[in-house]
């Protein structure tokens, strides 16, 4: 699956990190870092990350 984060919306709160640490992280500068191509086996956790994003900035294809 492909992950997209709308960086206009993202406020780097990092709530997604708790749901899928291997996909989302906050860098030393506090900014969001994420993987674009992720194996389908991670879908459940990635969808959880979509749910908990306060800015609703994450989409999955």
């Amino acid at each position: 699956m492909k992950i997209h984060v709308d960086m206009e919306k993202c406020q780097h709160y990092g709530q997604c990190v708790f749901e899928a640490e291997d996909v989302f992280s906050l860098g030393d500068d506090g900014k969001l870092i994420y993987k674009v191509d992720v194996d389908d086996s991670r879908r459940a956790d990635v969808e959880s990350a979509v749910d908990v994003c306060p800015m609703q900035a994450i989409t999955v294809e």
Binding site: H12, V17, F18, G27, D28
Partner: peptide
């Protein structure tokens, strides 16, 4: 305030 990355360990 503006320190999200540093709050994660607390959670």
């Amino acid at each position: 305030v503006n320190t999200s990355a540093k709050l994660a360990p607390y959670r």
